[in-house]
């Protein structure tokens, strides 16, 4: 299966990955070969097989509803690029 250039650009945009023009072809081929693997898998008859949601046979561990975390804001914010009034500052997001 091969992807079109606009499809590759769209996927890159969703993943917030910047693609230089020279990288486009290589990325398209790499993604294409991965999709080839998926196609091979899809060729197998999986009738009656429960879809796998996790690589292990474990079930989800649950914890009791109790507070175990205390306030470490100053430690976390000491390594943040920008903070003010207890808030993390980020480049302006406009909707």
């Amino acid at each position: 299966m091969s992807l079109t250039d606009p499809q590759v650009r769209h996927i890159a945009k969703l993943a917030r990955i910047e693609l230089a023009d020279g990288q486009l072809e290589r990325t398209r081929d790499a993604l294409g070969s991965m999709l080839g693997l998926i196609e091979q898998l899809q060729a197998i008859d999986t009738t009656g097989v429960e879809p796998m949601a996790h690589a292990t046979d474990l079930v989800l561990r649950l914890r009791d509803d109790a507070i175990s975390e205390t306030d470490h804001r100053s430690a976390y914010q000491a390594v943040a690029p920008a903070v003010e009034n207890g808030l993390y500052l980020v480049p302006k997001v406009i909707e």
């Binding site: 914890r63 509803d65 109790a66 507070i67 175990s68 975390e69 306030d71 470490h72 804001r73 976390y76 914010q77 009034n85 207890g86 808030l87 993390y88």
Partner: peptide, 22 residues
């Protein structure tokens, strides 16, 4: 009392980010 995936408190109205754990 605590969050869905962490042991931080869920109380409303705390000072910013004091209930945000790792």
């Amino acid at each position: 009392t605590s969050k869905i995936f962490s042991g931080s408190p869920t109380a409303f109205g705390a000072a910013p980010n004091v209930q945000a754990s790792a």
